[in-house]
Write a protein that binds this DNA or RNA. Structure first.
Lengths: 218, 218
DNA sequence: TTGACAAACAGACATTTGTCTGTTTTAATA
DNA sequence: TATTAAAACAGACAAATGTCTGTTTGTCAA
């Protein structure tokens, strides 16, 4: 059998796209010459031509006048408003610091010295986000289990019914916030646990609101 | 008050680190001259010096001979083996395609035409991952609720007790797999639902194993 | 005051990377 | 076969970027 027809199949172009996409996802756009080398082209222009075509097709975006300037266009967002906004523009990622034990007043220090980082879609840069590991079964019926990671948006206040991280007796805890007629209650979602009623003069400190839950299965 | 002491506080260096970190997270490392411009240095070397120092401190990594070659070092992993391995090397991200409705046999097509993309720590490149939105309450007691996104590792087989995505009556469904004495059962985690027993001659197709659950709160 | 040192400045040069012009090869098709 | 268009090649130049040598300035502390 002679050489299979690759000349007009567009297969090489697809492979180049996949290569560039993966390199961008891995941290940085490749250069034209890196594409050239990867595919064994003897001329820079061979790679350049494919890349230009991919940009013309809208499969890639090029930042003009910038080395390693290839970017991925935005991922199409699901139409259904199911709150799946953690799917964002591909390529725009932010890293959320994952904190160890948070104790009284030490939030800022904990944020500056995280255990590690979680990638997430970029979202609103003004939001201060951090992540915590859940301890205990108290939110089981809300689908938040021990070992789960919660992503928290830093804020001092919250509204009735929102799940918050609050500082109770010097330790961070996840509960649902109940506000009614001047009473403040931190409500577990598990009948085995008692609600924590906040006396009017008690100091309660809300660290933020839980915006995402992640669980890694073995 | 005279000019506060910035000369030796290291504050500028911290700001430069934050700038570089955020730029890397946003998609690409800045150049030395971009740092220079951002901080208003009149000499390239001023920025260069800070960057070199950050590399010496281990706060950044530099790929030699590469434009825009600054990278973030790996996030420190939590020592506790709590399975939180979705925290990976910072900067190494992969995008997981999020599929809409998956119907009989159409998995490959669905993967090539995703609804959107989820960022995740890179992990093992050999793993084929995709994501699905959960419908129904059948896995409620396992902490998997309607609207949750499950990340699935593509595989044809699974072990007893693992949560899998299987194709049942032409539609993808999430259940716990129970294998015992030649019987195959897809077990819901909710008493309101009945287990699905797979008759020996029935065609059952396992699409993959659930490796992560994500839930976005309003 | 002076020495030590970090930080910033000045200017240059080397390398990497992007982009251009024009030619040749390959495969499909009239 | 002749035509055509995509794909690949060849060689060059320009712009972006990395890196170097040496000097000056600001702050601390002896």
């Amino acid at each position: 059998m002679p050489t299979p027809n690759r000349q007009r199949s567009g297969e090489t172009r697809n492979e180049i796209f996949a290569f560039v996409r993966d390199r961008i996802a891995a941290g940085a756009s490749p250069t034209v010459r890196e594409v050239q080398r990867e595919f064994g082209f003897r001329a820079v222009q061979s790679a350049q031509q494919h890349l230009t075509a991919l940009v013309a097709d809208g499969r890639l975006i090029k930042e003009a006048g910038v080395a390693r300037g290839y970017r991925l266009p935005n991922g199409r967002l699901p139409e259904g408003g199911d709150g799946a906004s953690h799917i964002g523009p591909v390529g725009a990622v932010r890293y959320i610091p994952r904190l160890g034990r948070v104790q009284a007043g030490a939030l800022q220090e904990a944020i500056e010295d995280p255990d590690g980082w979680l990638p997430a879609a970029a979202g609103n840069p003004a939001d201060e986000l951090f992540a915590l590991t859940v301890r205990g079964e108290s939110m089981r019926d809300a689908g938040i289990l021990p070992g789960d990671t919660v992503v928290v948006r830093r804020q001092d206040t919250a509204r009735d019914g929102e799940i918050v991280v609050a500082l109770v007796e010097g330790e961070a805890t996840v509960k649902r916030l109940k506000l009614s007629a001047g009473r403040i209650v931190l409500q577990p979602e598990n009948d085995d646990f008692a609600p924590i009623e906040i006396a009017p003069d008690t100091e309660i400190r809300i660290l933020g609101r839980v915006v995402e839950v992640r669980r890694r299965l073995v």
